[in-house]
Amino acid sequence: MKKVSIERLLTWAFAVELAGWRPEERENLGYGSSAWSIIERVGALGTRIDGGTPLGQARREEPQADALIAADAVMGLAARGGFDVAPGWQPFPEWHDGHGLVAAEVARVIEEQRLRGDIVNGDHVVTLVLSSAVLGHGPDWEAEEPFAQPVSMNGKPRWFVKRKAKDAFGRIYEYEADGRDPAKRRPMRGAYRKYELTTPVRGAILSRLDWQLWQDALVHLHESLAPRLENHVLLPFRPDRQPWVRLVEAA
């Protein structure tokens, strides 16, 4: 029995054993259609791993049983629920967010993903686990901190004020208007500045979300595969859900 980490087991299964394997009859699998589906998706990734079989290149020998067992377990993630984000999730503790712009953008992106169903979409998690195994590493969570700058027009920071008005039904609503007095050429009483981020952070948010989804998936796969493997013994796995926290501790 060979001792191996869950990450190395998956890389071995998908980048070596299942890469390019094309049996003539699916019935030879012995693990049902789910294992075959995962093999087709591995081939669709079209990525070459150093030291492994180039994906898409045919190989003759049958993959080892543990590789098929791993494929079956990974495909099972598609039907598993519970991949969601806790309320108030903030994945950038190392960033300064004095104006709350990063927190607001995180909330917006997560709500967008939740409405689209992407967060709880098990199929996305399957693809995430597959790509990480084939590439040999998890999602890239490192990101450059953006800065806050005043909302400007023609290179000059703008001023804003709150106004109230009535709609056609007599209901009062609030809106935002230009807060600069054109006659006096100065801000009106109660005027305020608004700020925006210098660079978008949507990609960084989704990358850190993917990292945590990947770690949660590894926990589930470790528990699922540990009693089922025939020729491997899984080493203990401790998820590293927030590696970016170490940046705060280092600072």
Rank of each mutant, 00 (worst) to 15 (best):
K2Y: 09
K2I: 08
K3S: 01
K3V: 06
V4K: 01
I6P: 07
I6F: 02
L9I: 09
T11W: 04
T11N: 08
T11Y: 03
A15V: 08
V16F: 13
E17V: 06
E17R: 07
L18W: 02
L18I: 01
P23C: 03
S34I: 12
S37P: 04
S37L: 11
S37Q: 10
I39Q: 07
R41C: 01
R41E: 04
V42W: 07
G43M: 09
G46Y: 10
T53D: 04
L55F: 07
Q57W: 13
A58V: 15
R59W: 15
R60C: 13
P63R: 00
A67G: 00
A67W: 05
L68Y: 05
L68T: 07
A78I: 01
A79G: 05
R80H: 05
D84I: 12
G88H: 05
W89H: 02
W89S: 08
Q90W: 12
P93L: 11
E94N: 14
W95M: 09
D97N: 07
G98E: 12
G100Y: 10
E105Y: 03
V109N: 07
I110R: 03
I110F: 06
I110H: 03
E112D: 13
E112L: 10
Q113H: 08
R116D: 08
R116I: 02
D118L: 11
I119F: 13
V120E: 06
V120L: 05
D123W: 13
V125A: 01
V126R: 04
L130A: 03
S131D: 06
A133S: 02
L135F: 14
P139F: 06
P139I: 05
P139V: 07
P146L: 10
F147Y: 14
V151W: 11
S152H: 07
M153V: 09
M153H: 12
M153A: 10
M153N: 04
N154R: 15
N154G: 10
N154W: 10
R158K: 11
W159R: 06
V161P: 04
K162E: 10
K162M: 09
K166G: 00
K166C: 03
G170F: 09
R171W: 14
Y175G: 05
E176K: 12
A183C: 06
R189F: 14
Y192W: 13
R193G: 08
L197T: 03
T198G: 09
T199V: 11
L206E: 13
D210Y: 02
Q215F: 15
A217H: 13
L221E: 02
H222I: 07
E223D: 14
A226C: 01
R228V: 05
R228Q: 12
E230T: 14
N231L: 01
V233G: 00
V233E: 00
V233P: 00
P236L: 04
F237Y: 12
D240N: 13
R241N: 00
Q242V: 14
R246P: 08
R246A: 11
R246G: 09
